[in-house]
Each structure stands twice: as C-alpha cells, then as structure tokens.
Design a protein around this nucleic acid. Structure first.
Length: 214
DNA sequence: ATCCCGAGGG
DNA sequence: CCCTCTGGAT
C-alpha cells in the first residue's frame, strides 16, 4: 500500500531531523518511571523533570510512596498541575503495587490499566519505555499529527491507535511516538504550526488544504 | 486565551 | 458523548 511507503519515508526524515537516540523520564526503578509518566498528563515533560529529583529523594521505595502524606505529596508536585488527583492516584497506585504485585510493576497493559491513574496512554508508554514492548502511544502530539498527515481520521486516541496499527509495521511503533512528539514540539505545534519550515509539508493533508484555500 | 508525553467520572 | 481537574508557558 502506498501509505506504508510514505510512512517509512516520513519516519526516516524525522530520524534525520531529530536523531535516533531515545529519551525518557529520569528514574532508578520501574515504579518511579510509571509515576513520572502519570504525572506528565496535561503537563510538560520539562515541568515533570523539575520535580522528580526531590520526589525520588523523599520517597526512595515504593512502600514509602504507598504511605505518603497526601498534602505533603501535593506540595511537591503542585507545579505540574492536576495535583489533587495525581497525588491521590500516585499513592493509591503504589498501595496497589505493594498489595497486589509484591512491589513490582506488572508487565502487561491489562494489569497496568487496573492501577489508579494509569490509562491506556500511560500503560502503552510504560510498556515501551520500561520493557521495549512495541505499542503505539497516542498522546496529544501523535493524535494531532497523525490526523494532519491523513494516517488517522478520529479524535478518539484508541481509534487512532488502531488505525496506526494498520499503517505502521510493528518495529516502528515505539519510534512513531518519540519522533512525532519531537516534531510536534519543534514544528507542528498545536497552537501555531510552522508549516513553512516543515519537512513533511508535501505529505501533509492539512497543509495541502491550507494552500488550496489561499 | 490555549495547550501541555490524560484519567476518571457522569 | 460530555465535563472537571490545574499550574506554567506562550
């Protein structure tokens, strides 16, 4: 199919632009990574990075986070937003890990999504980041850009994920998330997309439609 | 005023 | 489907 060829070209172009090295939240243990991903909801990773060191220093073990004082925890994560529900979920999640999983983080999406504060996006990203399992993590950037490129035609992230599974070979599933996020932050921004500087504009249905209207 | 590596609840 | 949660950056 033509679209698959196009996808590979675009991913190669993004590799060329942004490099192939991976990034991820600072952590020593899996439960810390899971909480960091949880904290990133409706926040920026830069804001999360800022609070992680003090958090890891204060709560060294999952058992300690499971017994965290909520108000104290809220104070430490206040700057990332949504801090009431995040603090509550972080504590409850760690209580579940201790009580039901012997303090370990489960290695499958179904069990991950039973944890407080862990939805499909967080579960998929954790599976990829922690265990290298191929999952398509549809965050706001992947959703927006996939729709603009015509790879997806839905706003529901789950539908977008299923559509992308059809267009993308499995060995690109992790990469698509990393590179589209980078492109979303640098060029294809939600608010003011820099279409004039975009290396993908000749493939982009959004850009083609904009040109046609002028 | 709008968006950020969303989840939970109605 | 909708709404709410939330500080910080632009």
């Amino acid at each position: 199919m033509m679209k698959k060829l196009q996808v590979k070209k675009i991913l190669d172009k993004l590799d060329e632009l942004y490099g192939v090295d991976k990034d991820g939240f600072l952590h020593r243990e899996p439960w810390q990574l899971l909480l960091a991903i949880m904290m990133s909801a409706q926040s920026t990773d830069a804001q999360v990075d800022l609070v992680l060191p003090a958090l890891y220093d204060k709560y060294q073990k999952v058992e300690e986070m499971a017994e965290a004082d909520i108000e104290e925890l809220e104070g430490m994560i206040k700057t990332i937003g949504l801090y009431h529900s995040k603090a509550k979920n972080m504590k409850k999640c760690c209580q579940q890990l201790v009580a039901e999983y012997n303090g370990q983080v489960p290695d499958n999406r179904e069990d991950l999504m039973k944890l407080a504060g862990v939805g499909r996006k967080t579960a998929n990203l954790f599976m990829s980041d922690a265990y290298g399992v191929p999952e398509i993590t549809v965050d706001t950037h992947v959703n927006r850009i996939s729709n603009k490129l015509g790879w997806a035609h839905h706003s529901d992230p789950l539908k977008v994920e299923l559509e992308l599974q059809e267009v993308l070979p499995e060995d690109h599933w992790i990469r698509i998330n990393i590179q589209l996020i980078r492109h979303g932050r640098a060029v294809c921004k939600a608010r003011k997309p820099m279409c004039g500087d975009c290396a993908l504009s000749n493939w982009c249905e959004f850009q083609l439609a904009a040109v046609k209207e002028v």
